[in-house]
Nucleic acid binder design. Structure first.
Lengths: 142, 142
DNA sequence: CCGTCGATTTAGAACCGTTCAAGTTCTGCC
DNA sequence: GGCAGAACTTGAACGGTTCTAAATCGACGG
């Protein structure tokens, strides 16, 4: 349920929308998308061939800083970026190929960190990551 | 509560214990230790100056593969290695400096992934990571 | 003992993902 | 048009990890 929600939110923030930023943001639209920087570059170049990798990284980092994108480090390989920041959810990752799914476990999420366990930290987020082997990887090797 | 439990477990597995592997395993002893590969190298070299970084990585990877060590990727910087694999626990990491603590939240841990959310994966582990800013980093900058 | 074979270690090069630096181009404003 | 600042590009640099080739070690059989 989005359309171009991301772009609209960025406009609402008075964020300067350049052609490069627009195609990068469009590449990220969607609720179950977990692209790497290189994949974003590939998609963006389909629309605007002269986009550079550095701009992709710059833009991704800005989106992360403004909370519109969540970086997910799971398993091997490059960071993946999750544009679904509205709905709280967890991730399921393949330890072998790095494939990533959104998951919504049942019956929990009272899980808070008691003050005695916070070590004086200012808490920002909680990440839950389930790890395993996807059917494909399970088939092609032990 | 350990002593040289790790080394003993490794012996029990018929794992060949060389001087290098021994000093590396000794560097990892402890329940609240979260060393990086470089830190392990430093400690190991205190006992055996000619240990190489490649051997540290080889050994760490073998320990991870046999389930005696858990790699923790949190925040920036290099992977940290957690020898506390007996007690299930979570982690609290500083987003700025990468400092890592073990935490034991209260009242939860029924959190299972229902079959309908497993996507055919063979599940191996669940990681919970709390992220924030440690008191020191909070003091020295916004 | 000696030679051989496989496992382990080493130094250094290679690799990958990401960031940085320097110069260029674009945008909006006067 | 001209200026200032932001954004972009290219390519080099960087940090962490893995790979490669060669040296070394240990166990075993002859």
């Amino acid at each position: 349920m989005s359309g171009t929600a991301l772009l609209e939110r960025l406009r609402a923030r008075d964020w300067r929308i350049t052609p490069q930023r627009r195609v990068i943001a469009q590449a990220l639209e969607g609720d179950h998308v977990h692209l790497t920087a290189e994949e974003v570059l590939g998609i963006a170049r389909g629309q605007l061939p002269e986009v550079s990798l550095a701009t992709v990284y710059n833009t991704l980092n800005e989106l992360v800083a403004m909370g519109e994108l969540q970086p997910v480090d799971a398993g091997p390989g490059p960071t993946r970026y999750d544009p679904n920041v509205a709905q709280p959810h967890h991730h399921l990752a393949c330890l072998r190929c790095g494939e990533l799914h959104d998951v919504y476990p049942v019956g929990e999420d009272s899980m808070e960190l008691p003050r005695s366990q916070r070590f004086g930290y200012q808490l920002v987020s909680r990440e839950v990551l389930f790890q395993g082997y996807c059917p494909r990887c399970r088939a092609t090797a032990p």
